[in-house]
Amino acid sequence: MDDVKIGEILLPGEEPEQERRRQKVEKRFWPVFKRAFRQVPFSRDLVAAYYCALDPTTPTRVRGILLAALAYFVLPFDAVPDMLVGIGFTDDIAVLTAAFAAIRGHIRGEHYQSADRALSDGAGEAG
C-alpha cells in the first residue's frame, strides 16, 4: 500500500460524506474491533480514535480523517481481505497509523478514558 493510496483514503471529505462514514463506523466498529482485537497492536489508540471521531468538539478536518480511516477499518472489502489470518488487518493498520500521524495531539485524555472504560467492559460491549 503506497502513500498516495493512503492519502486518498484519508481525505476528510465534505460533511455529507463524513456523516455517511460516521453512520457506518458507529454501526460496524465494535463487531469488527472484537474480531481484530488481537491483531491490532494499538487497540487502545484505535478505540480512543473512535471516541475522538465521534466527539463533536473535535475539529471537522480531524474528525473527517479519523472517520475515513475508521470507515476503511470497518468496511469488509479493502486491499487485503480481513479474513486472512495474520495479514488481514495489515493494510488497515497502515491506514490507521497514517491517520494517527496526521492528527497527532487531537486524541485527548477524555477519549483515552472512554477507551479504557470500554476495553475494561469487554472490548466495547458497553461502548
Rank of each mutant, 00 (worst) to 15 (best):
D2E: 14
D2C: 12
D2P: 06
D3C: 08
D3H: 10
V4W: 14
K5I: 15
K5V: 15
K5T: 15
K5R: 15
I6G: 05
I6T: 03
G7C: 11
E8W: 08
L11I: 10
P12I: 08
G13Y: 00
G13V: 04
G13A: 07
E14H: 00
E14C: 02
P16S: 10
Q18T: 14
E19K: 03
E19S: 07
R20W: 01
R20K: 14
R21A: 13
R22M: 15
Q23I: 14
E26I: 07
E26M: 10
K27W: 12
W30V: 15
W30R: 02
W30P: 04
W30D: 10
W30F: 14
P31A: 05
P31N: 06
V32G: 00
V32S: 01
F33T: 06
F33E: 12
K34Y: 09
K34Q: 15
K34R: 15
A36P: 08
A36T: 08
F37W: 12
R38W: 13
Q39T: 09
Q39W: 13
V40T: 03
V40A: 04
F42G: 07
S43F: 03
R44F: 02
D45V: 09
L46Q: 04
V47H: 05
V47L: 08
A48N: 01
A49W: 02
A49Y: 07
Y50C: 06
Y50S: 08
Y50P: 07
Y51N: 03
Y51R: 00
A53M: 06
A53G: 04
A53L: 01
A53Y: 06
A53N: 07
L54K: 01
D55R: 02
D55V: 06
P56T: 04
T57F: 04
T58M: 02
T60L: 11
T60W: 10
R61A: 02
R61L: 07
V62Q: 01
L66E: 07
L67Y: 09
L67W: 05
L67C: 13
A68P: 05
A69E: 09
A69G: 12
L70F: 07
A71P: 04
A71K: 00
Y72W: 10
Y72I: 09
L75N: 14
L75H: 12
P76H: 07
F77T: 12
D78A: 09
A79H: 07
M83L: 13
L84V: 15
L84S: 02
G86W: 12
G86V: 05
G86M: 02
I87S: 01
I87W: 07
G88I: 05
F89S: 00
T90L: 09
T90S: 14
T90G: 05
D91C: 08
D91A: 10
V95E: 14
T97W: 10
A98M: 12
A98V: 11
F100H: 11
F100L: 14
F100A: 09
A101H: 15
A101G: 07
A102P: 02
A102K: 14
I103V: 15
R104Q: 03
G105R: 02
H106A: 03
R108P: 08
R108C: 05
G109R: 13
G109E: 13
E110P: 04
Y112A: 00
Y112W: 02
Y112K: 00
Q113N: 12
S114M: 10
A115I: 06
D116G: 01
R117Y: 03
L119R: 02
S120T: 05
G122I: 00
A123Y: 02
G124P: 06
G124Q: 04
G127A: 12
